[in-house]
Design a protein around this nucleic acid. Sequence first.
RNA 1: GCGAAUGUAGCUCAGUUGGCAGAGUACCUGGUUGUGGCCCAGGGUGUCGCAGGUUCAAACCCUGUCAUUCGCC
Length: 387
Amino acid sequence: MTPETHMEKTPGTFELIGMDGRARAGILHTAHGSIETPIFMPVGTVGSVKALAPDDIHAIGAQIILGNTYHLYLRPGDDLVARRGGLHEFMKWDRPILTDSGGFQAFSLSSLNKMSADGVEFRSHIDGSRHMFTPEKVVSIQRNLGSDIMMPLDVCLGYGASREDAAKAVRRTTEWAARCRAAHPVGSPGLLFGIVQGCTYPELREASARQLMDIGFEGYSIGGLAVGEPKNLMMKNLRALDPVLPQEKPRYLMGVGTPLDILHAIETGVDMFDCVLPTRNARNGTLYTSAGKVNIKRREYAEDDSPLDPKCSCYTCRTFTKAYLRHLYVSKELLAFRLNSIHNLTYFLDMVRGARRAILEGRYAEFKAGYEAMYPEEDLLFDAPEC
RNA sequence: GCGAAUGUAGCUCAGUUGGCAGAGUACCUGGUUGUGGCCCAGGGUGUCGCAGGUUCAAACCCUGUCAUUCGCC
């Protein structure tokens, strides 16, 4: 379960140790240890992976988790966290933490905010108070949190934006990225990634990537996908970026995705993923298993004494029956959140670990095919003809 | 024993000039992509206590009966 130990190298170093087609296996070094890629990163928005303690997060095989600038800034406040030694010490997680910048919240909570050239003015979803995020401010917040991998403020648009709007968003994202880089020069503690935007226009994506590469970052995030566009369009844009992005830097597809999203994206050279799906679905009763998705709420499991997934080695599957998991869920017992989250995250982390092994052994296509067979309907969407 | 009230979806209850059986909740089935444990979409699951009667038509009007609750002997 624990990752192999590697010689500690300078934070930011990315070693590409194997490829199978365009799929990559690598090692990314940070101040809190190394990460074996491809990797899935559990989301811990407000300083916890919901329902899990650090021991649980270790046990499921997580190597790095996410924290969120927007949420932690509003509550409890990045200064308060800094006074307690940073987010690692505060939440007692001693491995890498990646922080999102708040750019996505500017998009997802857009009814509460106003964007200008200088940044995003927004109202707190907690108490309605007014705040301003500038590129410099979000870097400052993330440094206060002690983030290992920081994101710059970016402009994320939904699917369907015009080419003109998308081009404007790219321009502003680049300007803001440059300001973040200036506020956090190479060599500062904590890696800074650039975020590629450009909606579903491949040539804008390429331009965005090249502009960010001119500035220079320790890695490249791909934002603004999986926001409603067809899956074949997401793939088209990822394929367009693969030859443009530098081989020697990690690539992070933000907010993605389903198991098949991740496996298809790995095939286009993406190394890092995060998504709320495994944890949110765990809390909503949808569980991922080697036999596909299981809705644990279903009546048919009321007296099913078999484990959720006999092929899964997580604590939940080793210990409990489906009948019990259904009972906990239906009864709204808090333990359901923990057991379901342990299982779903184990599924995602086992999957990316399996993908890594398959890449290193040159059998990635075969590995991926096994998952495609499990989600046949969804898989069709990736190869659908373009509209 | 007498009197009164109430019996409609699993639960709580709407349902008047008599005209296709309803709501909330629960329940069932999907969904959930840089997280508000939320939310969204679809589904009615029924011997209108029971049996008769009146009527073209009864949850509704009439008769009887059963059950529950309250009050009085």
